[in-house]
């Protein structure tokens, strides 16, 4: 990526409507990164829940700041998926080089990792359960499982310091880097940034976020299904019925399906897209599965 890449017009530009959602996704990424920066002074990995509680209710507009961060991240996920669907529908994937396409496909697992690490940083009961689940899944990767698990989650059991560094550092950096390469600009355009900011602020104001035990929970804490983040419900449901390695095999499969779409033509492309569609249908099905189990 040279200096010229940053000043060139984005692929498609005004001619391609898929560019709109892509730019909006970059806008959301920027809002998320900026609001995340604003959260940094208030967060302590060693006292995750306590520091978030203080921010959430003890600081003027703290709850809003946190919600802005969360909803802009959700916005990033949703617009990235929508952007992909548009690209595939309009067959504009060849506007990217093969290498850039593969790297762009990697934005999906990266976005999920960034969001999941943010969820774990909450430090409440649901987040505390997500940590061993993530850890055990990473361990089932052949050959490098334990190393991968320690690299991502750190070597101190129960500590979220490593995850917080990955969340704010590794994942954000990679997301920004690949997005910048993909969009051929270092920062999002002003309109997308403003629009993403306004949408995030509207949601952050209107829909409050939860933290800690829900009001009215029973003190004896009867065993109930903990659902985890909404965007991973499909994975939660899949783990009830499928073996554990499916938790990384299935995303890998989707990445491969999408990655090969660029090079495929006609029937092969259709087959790949049908398979990806089946993957998404299974995800929706498993989401329903876990919601039914939790009822």
């Amino acid at each position: 990526m040279g200096g010229s890449a940053l000043t060139e017009a984005p692929p498609g530009g005004a001619r391609s409507p898929s560019g709109d959602l892509g730019r909006l996704a970059f806008g959301f990424l920027a809002v998320s990164a900026l609001s995340g920066l604003a959260l940094v002074p208030f967060f302590s990995p060693a006292h995750a829940l306590e520091s978030l509680e203080r921010l959430h209710d003890g600081m003027p507009w703290g709850f809003f700041l946190r919600a802005l961060h969360a909803y802009s991240s959700f916005g990033l996920l949703v617009t990235t998926v929508a952007h992909l669907v548009q690209v595939l529908a309009r067959r504009t994937e060849r506007q990217l080089s093969a290498g850039a396409w593969w790297r762009s496909v990697l934005l999906f697992p990266l976005t999920f990792l960034a969001l999941l690490s943010g969820f774990v940083l909450r430090g409440d009961a649901a987040a505390a359960e997500a940590l061993p689940v993530w850890s055990r899944i990473a361990e089932t990767v052949p050959f490098l499982g334990p190393e991968l698990q320690r690299l991502l989650l750190g070597v101190i059991p129960g500590d979220v310091g490593a995850i917080s560094l990955h969340h704010a550092g590794t994942f954000t950096f990679l997301l920004w880097l690949i997005t910048a390469e993909h969009g051929r600009r270092l920062v999002p355009d002003a309109r997308s940034l403003v629009l993403a900011g306004l949408v995030s602020a509207a949601l952050a104001g209107a829909v409050p976020l939860t933290l800690g035990p829900p009001p009215g929970a029973s003190p004896s804490g009867a065993a109930q299904i903990l659902l985890g983040p909404w965007y991973l419900l499909g994975l939660q449901g899949a783990l009830v019925d499928l073996p554990v390695p499916s938790a990384w095999l299935a995303p890998l499969l989707l990445v491969l399906l999408l990655g090969f779409v660029r090079g495929a033509d006609g029937r092969a492309r259709r087959l790949l897209l049908v398979l990806a569609g089946a993957w998404v249908a299974a995800w929706v099905g498993f989401t329903a599965r876990i919601l039914l189990l939790a009822r």
């Binding site: 005004a14 709109d20 909006l24 003027p60 507009w61 709850f63 809003f64 309109r191 997308s192 403003v194 629009l195 900011g197 306004l198 949408v199 602020a201 509207a202 949601l203 952050a204 104001g205 209107a206 409050p208």
Partner: peptide, 25 residues
Amino acid sequence: MFRAPALIAALFAALLGFLVASGRE
């Protein structure tokens, strides 16, 4: 490109959200 109606709608939504949030604040 995002046009003015999108901006106006988003402005309106954000204002609404801001009002709800200031009540909560």
